[in-house]
Structures are given as structure tokens and as C-alpha cells.
Design a protein around this nucleic acid. Sequence first.
DNA 1: GAGTGGTCTAGACCACCCG
DNA 2: GGGTGGTCTAGACCACTCG
Lengths: 293, 293
Amino acid sequence: MNPASSNLTNNATAASGAVSPTAGAPATPVAAAASTPVTAVASSNTTTAMPVASAAPTFSPLYQQIKALITQSLQSGEWKPGELIPSEVELAGRFKVSQGTVRKAIDELAAENLVMRRQGKGTFVSTHHEARAHFRFLRLVPDEGVPHYPESKFIEVKRVRAPADVARLMDLKSGDAVIFIKRVQYFDGVPTIVEELWLPGLIFKGLTAERLVEYKGPMYGLFETEFGTRMIRASEQIRAVCADAGAAQLLNIDLGTPLLSSERVSFTYGDKPVELRRGLYLTSRHHYQNELS
Amino acid sequence: MNPASSNLTNNATAASGAVSPTAGAPATPVAAAASTPVTAVASSNTTTAMPVASAAPTFSPLYQQIKALITQSLQSGEWKPGELIPSEVELAGRFKVSQGTVRKAIDELAAENLVMRRQGKGTFVSTHHEARAHFRFLRLVPDEGVPHYPESKFIEVKRVRAPADVARLMDLKSGDAVIFIKRVQYFDGVPTIVEELWLPGLIFKGLTAERLVEYKGPMYGLFETEFGTRMIRASEQIRAVCADAGAAQLLNIDLGTPLLSSERVSFTYGDKPVELRRGLYLTSRHHYQNELS
DNA sequence: GAGTGGTCTAGACCACCCG
DNA sequence: GGGTGGTCTAGACCACTCG
């Protein structure tokens, strides 16, 4: 089905259309070829009678509606990570809006790292399989030398029922099936991070220790390629704690050594949480780098 | 002097102008009323002979040049924090470009938090004297309850010579005059942050303990109002450490309690470092909140 | 009602990439 | 050479604010 038949509502058109379709605006960009009619929406207190179709409908700029439509296509997998999406001109034709409007929609998607523009080539769906993306979520960098990706050693991978606190953070029900992963990460052979991950069992069905081990590189790349789940953003809470016996042993440090504790919830499209990650970082030769702006 | 007489270079015009000023482009937006002529700049390998005036000149989109000019006006204090800057239409007239080009320049400045747009009112120079801005650089939030600003108690304020490590981070010479400040910050009466600040003596001449004490609210507000120095962005390195005797006493905690250590360098216009801040955060009832995107 | 930023359009040309 | 995103313009109308 052609996305052009979506219920886009040009608020400007809706408002002036009720009075009199004057000369000025090019107007009515949507209804033209669409199969479903435009749903007129009263935007505010401008005029009077409006043929209000639906009750409490959407209300946003056209480019936001376009952005939402494009996001839907990204979410549905119509365009997969790494792939080229249709050109601005084509999307403009499809949605029956001007190229400038599509451009503004894509501008925001690019700012949110959902897509990447490349002049002369086109617009691509972002992917975690890029050098650029590798350090977007990895903020622990060496005090000296260039940032690089650590090696992983998996300690444990198992299916369990979600504890209450985990379920709450991941928007699951307590007792729902989740996959639990525990690993240690090494920088230049030095154990530096011990991490516990919780993933919804429903989405990550079939994730085994073998697949994790044989996969090199960021786990988000694996999640994206093998399970069709792309991490979009994450929220992190950081504290200082003392190493307990378990962490001390795994990181080969003294009991009580201060460690950075990070609790991260990652989200995919629609702000849906799909990962809880609890990490302990040894910060004697590395630090957590943050840019405030 | 009117900024319109700046050496703006419309790269597009420069290129096609050398061939033949065809009908299409509106072209030559700058030279019109300006006193200094347009400096034509060869952009790449498009055409051949160009009346290259200067040797290795600027080369950037028009809107970037406009952005740079506006930034200069911000930096020079022509428009002060909190003030209204000229409207887009007026700036377009002043710079002899279209409103759309000015708009794109201001869009970027707004994205960088240098200015704030308010529909119907105008565009204002950002200031640290706003509720919105208070939490831009304060990432320590309570585990429960709403974020709020801590109270400060100043321990020490003195003029000293910059130690080597401080000088290096602040782009000063070792031994240059700096102001050293030490304070403790309280959330709901509980000492939570102990902080040491280093400021260039030249810029913050006249900063005394009295003025710090009588000033309520974020220090960046004071710096902006009293010393004309606006913090634009900051870079932070975070670690976990153990409380030493000094910190333990000031924060009323046991020796060895794990603390978050933050080293922050703040920058003003032109990426010039103007503050070094070293803090120790007690994270038993608070956490450092970070959004990854 | 006048002025401001916000949205939308249409059309031109550029820089870049690839076959 | 043809397609893509990037820049720039001109002009329209909207939403919002204030006197």
C-alpha cells in the first residue's frame, strides 16, 4: 500500500480552507492523489465551523507528520539498517509534499542519529556496524592512547525470570522471561569492565552463548542484525561504589577498590526499553568521558 | 561600522559568475550595498580562471559565514545575555542575504544553546539566569524527588599561581595568576559535593569571597553577569575514587567511602578554556544522570 | 494590527558520487 | 551525465505576543 494514502493533515490548509481557498498559498498538498481524504483538523481558535471528522486527532506540522511516517517505515523494517532510503525527491512525491518539507523531516531524523546523509549518495539508515557508531554508547576511554574497543569474555548466559526491579525498569511484568548475560571486558588484556545485561526473552529468543562468542564487535550490532532490534538512545545513572568479592575477583583487584557503577536502560523505536545493563568500570587507567553542551 | 560591509563570499555566485551570470540564480546577494567588494573564492575544481584576491581565504556556506558574524557579535557583547537580538528580517537586510539563510544560521546557534528562539517575541541571547539553564551543567540529581539546586558554603577563596597541571588544562602558563575556590554544596542540608575551582586571574580579577557568598544561584550566572564570561560547553572526565581525610571530613563520611570524581574544563566562545573544576560527589542518595543519544 | 519566529512551497544552482 | 544531498532565494501564510 502506498504511504501517500495516509491521513496527513496540513493544518494551514485546514484553517484557511474553511474560510475561503484564497489565492496565496499553494495549499492542499496532500489530498490530491491520496485514496483516503484529508482529515481536516481545527488547529486553534482561528476561525469557526470546521468539518471535524475525528474526535481528538493529531495536530502537528506537516514535516513532523512526514517524520513520523518515515520513522514508521524504519521501525517496520521497510528500510533496514545500512540500506539506502528513497531520495528526498521521491519521498516528496510519495507524500505529496515539497522536497523542503521532506528535507526538514530528514534533518531531524539525522540529528537523532536514526539516519545518515551522505552528499552525492543518498540517505542511509543508521547502523551499529560502523566505526563511527561504536563509541556512541561506549564512554569509557583510556587516559592515554586512542580509544578502542575492548574484548569480551562471557561468564554466563541464561534464561531466567525477571526480578521485580529489572522488570520495572524494562517495562515488563515481574517473572517474565528474560535473558541474563554476564561478561568481562578487557582493554589491552586488562580486565576493566564487568557487566550484567538483561534482555526481554520474547525479542531475543534464540540468543545463545555461542552466538555471542563468535560475534566480534559491539553487541548492539548483533542485536540489530540478528534480532532486528535497534538501540536508539539510552539513559544512564552513574555512581561510585566499592568492589565486592565477585567484581574484585573478575577484575583482579583488591576488595573495596572504588568502581564506577553504571545502570543503563536502552530504548528502541517508540521509547520502548529493550535492554538493562549494569556495569562496573575500573577507572584507574580509564575514565568516563562526557561532553556537556 | 555596519556589519554588511564584511567580506562575505557567496561561493555559488563566485563559481557561476566566472562562467556567465545566467538567468537562473538570484545571485550576488552580498556585494550590492556593501562598501567592500565581494571576495571571490575558487571553491574547487569546477571551472578555470578566477580572480583570486586573497591567498588561502575562508570557504564555507553563506549561512556559516552569517553564523560566524552573529557569533562575533555575541562574543563582543554587542548583544548581551538575556537581550533580544535583531529580527531575522533585519539581519537578512543587514547582511544582504535572504531571511532563510539567516534562519539557518540562527537554527544552528539555537541548537548549540547560544541563543533561544521564542515564537512571537524574537531571538534572545542565552543566559545562565534561567531555570532551564540551571541543570545543563549540573548532572547530579537525587535518587528520589525532583532535581533542585544545592546550597553552597565557601571554604576558601584565594589568588595563587597556577600549578603545572592546572595551567596545562586551562591553556595558561605555569605560574600565571589564577583564582582558587573551594566549596561544599548541600542538598537538603546534606553535604554532597566538595569542589575546587580554578579561574584565570586576568579574567576574574576582583572576584572575592564576599561576592560569591552574597550571590545566590549558579556560579555561571555570576561569571556571566559580573565578568562578561559566558560558559558555552564543557568536557568532563569521571572516575571513582575513595574519600581522603579532607573530603571525608567535609562531607561527614567515613574515610574510604567511594566518591565520584569529576574533572571538568569549561569553555567560552572560541573554545577558550576559562574554568577548571574538580569535584567529588557523594552518590549514596544521588546519581550522575546522563542521556546517551 | 503590527511584528516575530514557524511552516511550506517552488525553483535554481552547487558539490559530490558513480557508472 | 544523471542522480543525490546541500545551499540559497523569494514569497506566502500560520501561530504567537504585545500594545
